[in-house]
Amino acid sequence: MVKEIIKYPTTPSLEFGANVRHFNQELFDLIKDLKDTIEANNLDALSAFQIGSPYAVIVIKKDDGEFLELINPRIIKREGTITPVESTAYFPGLSAKTKRYEKIKLMYEDRDANQQFLEAEGDLAVTIQRKLDYVFGSNFRVRLDDNERKLLDSKLEFGTDAITDNGCPTTFKRDKLLHLIKFVFVASLLALITKFFLSEENLSILKSAENYAMLSILILTVIYFFYAIHEGKQYKNCSSCQIGNIIGVTGITLAKLLVLFGANYFLLW
């Protein structure tokens, strides 16, 4: 049966990590529910804790479509460290850089209560470690350093994974658009000055070029405004001042465009 996956900010039951003692139909039903829920939500793994069960059970869907059932799992050997970027159904749509063991050796029991051992590395090792966090009533937030934890909290606050930094940088990608707008504006002014040295035939060409230049500035300004708003959402701590700055820069650019339009109106039209 497909179960509802517990998601942030709902806190699962305070009972967790209970070892399975009875390998009976109740356990088999729980494993079936985990498999059904994994399939229904297109996931790679689930811990029983994520569907509200206190038992230490993990089910992982392997690359070949088969399921790995881990009952009462415990890591008994660990080696090396890696910093993968992880996502989890508990924080849907969000990701964070964690710290994990590169290789692990796992002791667990199968559904027949037989003790088994598993050596894992890479993605499988990371998945097992992530699900073991849930077995003990936690999630990957506890594996984050202070900066990454603050970043995840910002993502949770704003409900987006687009935030990449809590600081406020001094330069932005959108500045390149401003440089392009400035270049077109200056070029248009310089071209306008040549009006006094051109023939009537060339004046017609200049008029068309000026019209295209002003249209380009307008389009680039609109693109700048919307992209700047999008880029600003990536930085929590300076979002309010950025919005004011973006509006101010857009207003000044449009005012310059109006001046350029007036100059063209009186000199060319």
Rank of each mutant, 00 (worst) to 15 (best):
E157Q: 11
G251E: 08
N42M: 12
L267Y: 08
L206R: 04
F261S: 14
A263T: 15
G248H: 14
L178E: 11
I51T: 06
K35C: 07
R74A: 11
I243V: 10
G80V: 06
I246Q: 01
D36S: 07
F23M: 10
Y265C: 09
F225Q: 00
L14P: 12
K61V: 04
G17M: 06
V142G: 03
V222I: 15
C238Q: 06
S138R: 08
F172W: 11
D161S: 08
Q115W: 06
I31C: 03
E231Q: 02
L70V: 00
K7H: 07
K233F: 01
L118M: 04
I223R: 00
E121G: 09
I128S: 05
G251Q: 05
V142T: 12
K176L: 13
P92R: 02
R100W: 02
Q116M: 15
D63Y: 09
E66F: 00
Q116H: 10
Y224V: 00
G93Y: 00
K233S: 07
A255Y: 13
S216E: 09
A228V: 06
T250C: 09
K195L: 13
G52F: 07
R143D: 14
T250E: 09
F117T: 13
E39M: 05
V186A: 11
F91C: 02
S87K: 03
Y90S: 06
Q115V: 13
P12Y: 09
N114I: 08
T253R: 08
N264I: 09
A162P: 00
P54F: 06
R130K: 10
K7S: 10
K99W: 03
A48L: 03
I38L: 04
Q116T: 00
M214Q: 14
I223T: 07
H179P: 01
Y108T: 00
I243K: 10
N245K: 14
S240F: 08
V135M: 05
D133S: 01
A187S: 15
V142C: 09
I58C: 05
D175K: 03
K62V: 10
V184D: 12
C241A: 13
T164R: 13
D36N: 11
I193A: 13
K61R: 14
Q242T: 08
T10E: 15
L177A: 08
Y108D: 01
E66Y: 01
T160G: 04
L132P: 03
S47I: 12
F16H: 14
E26N: 14
T164S: 14
K195C: 11
D165Y: 11
L30F: 01
G262A: 15
T250G: 10
L144D: 08
H179L: 15
L70C: 00
K176M: 12
L124V: 01
K62P: 05
Y8R: 05
